[in-house]
Structures are given as C-alpha cells and as structure tokens.
Computed example of a mutant assay.
Amino acid sequence: MKEISFNDFLAKYQAGEIQVLDVREQEEYDARHLDGVTLLPLSVLAERYSELDKNQPFYVICRSGKRSARACLFLEKKGYDVTNVQGGMNALED
C-alpha cells in the first residue's frame, strides 16, 4: 500500500494537484473537513466504491489513518490507484 506523510499530502492538496477521498462518517466530516474532497464513509465503501472514477488516483484520508488504510487495501484489490494519508485529519493543526 502506498502511503504519504500528512505534510507532503497537504502540500499537494494546497497546490490543487490531487483528488481526496475522505472515508470518515458524515458527522466527523461535518465537524471538520478539507474543501473539495469526496466523502464516502468506510461503512458504505463496499456498496458504493463503484461511484469512484477508477481512472483517477485518490489520496485517502480519515481521522487517524487507520480507516483510510483499510479503505486503501480494499480499493487496491478492486483496481484503484490509492494512497493512504498517514496521520489523517488528526495531523492537521488548528
């Protein structure tokens, strides 16, 4: 599984170079999120992953990096190009 540090991810995100998939639940997303990301909670990913563009690479984020790692493993098996964001939203400083 490919991984990226949060700081390297943030630089790419701020440059507008990437597509981000947030796999947290709606309530977590509503409390704090990055603008322009796709929300697809891990709890429904198995049923809805086909909504994602298979030709588009995604950087996958959650709260701490654990759910996003699980999402990456699942999506890799389905043929998606995904990278796990280490540390997740917890790494974002206020």
Rank of each mutant, 00 (worst) to 15 (best):
A71N: 13
G65V: 07
V37W: 04
E93S: 15
V82L: 09
P57L: 06
G16S: 06
V44W: 00
C72G: 02
E28Y: 05
R24Q: 10
S5R: 09
E47C: 02
Y13S: 06
G36V: 03
D53R: 00
L92M: 09
N90P: 12
K78Y: 04
A15T: 05
A71M: 08
Q26G: 03
A11P: 10
V85K: 01
M89K: 01
Q86K: 08
N7A: 13
S68E: 00
P57D: 08
V82K: 02
A69C: 05
Y49K: 05
C62N: 06
E51W: 09
D94K: 15
F74Q: 01
C72S: 05
R63A: 14
S5Q: 12
D94Q: 15
L10E: 06
Y29K: 00
R67S: 10
H33V: 11
F6K: 14
D8E: 13
V82P: 04
I18W: 04
F58E: 03
N7K: 12
T38S: 06
R48C: 03
R32M: 15
I4D: 07
D35N: 15
H33Q: 03
K66F: 04
K77S: 12
L92P: 00
D35T: 13
C72Y: 01
I18V: 03
A11G: 15
A11Q: 15
G16L: 08
Y13C: 02
V23A: 06
L73H: 14
N84F: 04
A31E: 15
E47G: 11
D30F: 10
G88S: 01
T83C: 10
A69R: 14
A31D: 13
G65W: 01
L34V: 09
Q86N: 10
D8N: 15
L45M: 08
G36F: 08
F9P: 08
S68F: 02
A31R: 09
I4V: 12
C72H: 00
L40A: 03
C72V: 01
G79F: 00
S50F: 14
D8A: 10
G87N: 08
D22S: 07
D35H: 14
L42D: 00
A69M: 13
D30E: 11
L52K: 04
L45I: 09
E25N: 06
Q86E: 04
L52I: 02
F74R: 06
S5A: 14
L73G: 10
E17D: 14
S43T: 10
A69S: 07
P57R: 01
Q26V: 13
A11K: 15
R70L: 11
Q19I: 01
V37K: 09
Y80G: 00
R63M: 15
Q14T: 07
A71C: 15
S68Y: 07
D8V: 13
Q86F: 00
D35Q: 05
H33D: 11
Q56F: 02
L10S: 02
F6A: 06
G65A: 07
V20Y: 02
E51H: 05
V82S: 09
L40P: 08
L21W: 00
L39R: 02
V85G: 06
G88I: 00
V37S: 07
Y59G: 03
D35P: 15
Q56T: 14
V85C: 08
S68K: 03
D22K: 05
E3N: 10
P57N: 02
R70S: 08
V20D: 05
H33T: 13
D22E: 07
A91N: 11
K12P: 11
N90W: 11
N7D: 15
A91T: 09
Q14M: 10
Q56C: 04
N84A: 12
L39V: 03
